[in-house]
């Protein structure tokens, strides 16, 4: 039995080591602050007020350069807006439709079924307007950075490797600008210094100056506050299923524990007389 225990222990450690090492090296440099997000952990949920504020930051600041291709207006209901509010938000934007009877494409107000319109027609146009750097699409940004999406076990397994959660990385990036690059760092023309960006030299200027937006709910728009809100919004955009997933997960695991316990009792009973 000793062998079994040792082997199990080695197998599990092996799994964890390999799991961690396989996701390493996506982000280097100093570790951003790890925030106690409302969506962290087994029972995590999104803070609706923060989502709505984050959406406001996205609309007013990010959306000028970044696309959000995978999000449709109808999805905004998850932020706590009702049918009519979603329609009103959609109607503020124009999307291309067509061709009409004359064979021409035309613009019309967006409907809830439409996806978020991109600020640039294509990546070439985006690069041309942004000094050669294409602003990445933000629909999956928190999954595509850091440890790749929400992970309930990051504290025990991923932290020792210095590997931040995607949300922590995005928040760190937005708040991690330095006015001037440290002495000796050769910052190229037109680039900005960021503590957490790999290589530190980033093409995006610090996007969230104090009071960059005026919050509808009266919250004071500090850089840190806006960064937290927009990060929450972007985590939602990456993982809209998160709340449902976690709630279902708790039920499924409780069920499996009960079923496994019953199977174990039955196994004991059936095997009781085997010698």
């Amino acid at each position: 039995m000793q062998i079994i225990k040792t082997l199990t222990a080695i197998a599990i450690t092996g799994t964890l080591i390999i799991g961690v090492s396989s996701t390493q090296a996506a982000v280097s440099g100093p570790k951003p602050e790890s925030i106690n997000w409302s969506f962290n952990g087994v029972f995590g949920t999104y803070d609706r007020a923060s989502l709505q504020r984050g959406f406001q930051v996205f609309q007013n600041v990010c959306a000028g350069c970044h696309s959000l291709n995978l999000v449709a207006f109808r999805n905004l209901k998850a932020l706590g807006y009702n049918e009519n509010e979603v329609k009103a938000i959609a109607a503020e934007y124009e999307v291309q439709d067509g061709p009409n009877e004359d064979g021409d494409m035309f613009d019309r107000p967006a409907t809830p079924a439409d996806h978020w319109p991109a600020p640039f027609a294509n990546s070439r146009a985006a690069a041309a307007m942004n000094g050669g750097a294409v602003p990445p699409d933000l629909s999956l940004i928190t999954k595509a950075r850091g440890s790749g999406g929400d992970s309930a076990i990051r504290v025990s397994m991923l932290q020792p490797s210095g590997f931040p959660l995607g949300a922590d990385y995005v928040h760190g990036l937005l708040t991690g600008y330095l006015e001037e690059a440290p002495v000796g760092f050769d910052l190229p023309e037109g680039k900005y210094y960021n503590k957490y960006y790999p290589g530190h030299s980033i093409a995006m200027s610090s996007p969230l100056g104090e009071d960059a937006v005026e919050y509808n709910d009266g919250t004071k728009a500090t850089t840190d506050q806006m960064s937290r809100d927009v990060t929450t919004f972007l985590v939602w955009a990456s993982e809209p299923e998160l709340e449902h997933r976690k709630q279902l997960g708790v039920k499924v695991i409780l069920f499996l524990i009960v079923l496994t316990a019953m199977l174990y009792a039955l196994k004991r009973r059936i095997w009781a007389n085997v010698h």
């Binding site: 069920f255 499996l256 009960v258 079923l259 019953m262 009792a265 039955l266 009973r269 059936i270």
Partner: peptide, 17 residues
């Protein structure tokens, strides 16, 4: 009897799952 009960209840839970 006790074992039969355990078999049937486990089977029922498993089938429901």
């Amino acid at each position: 009897t006790r074992r039969d009960f355990l078999i049937w209840s486990t089977a029922a839970v498993g089938a429901a799952g």
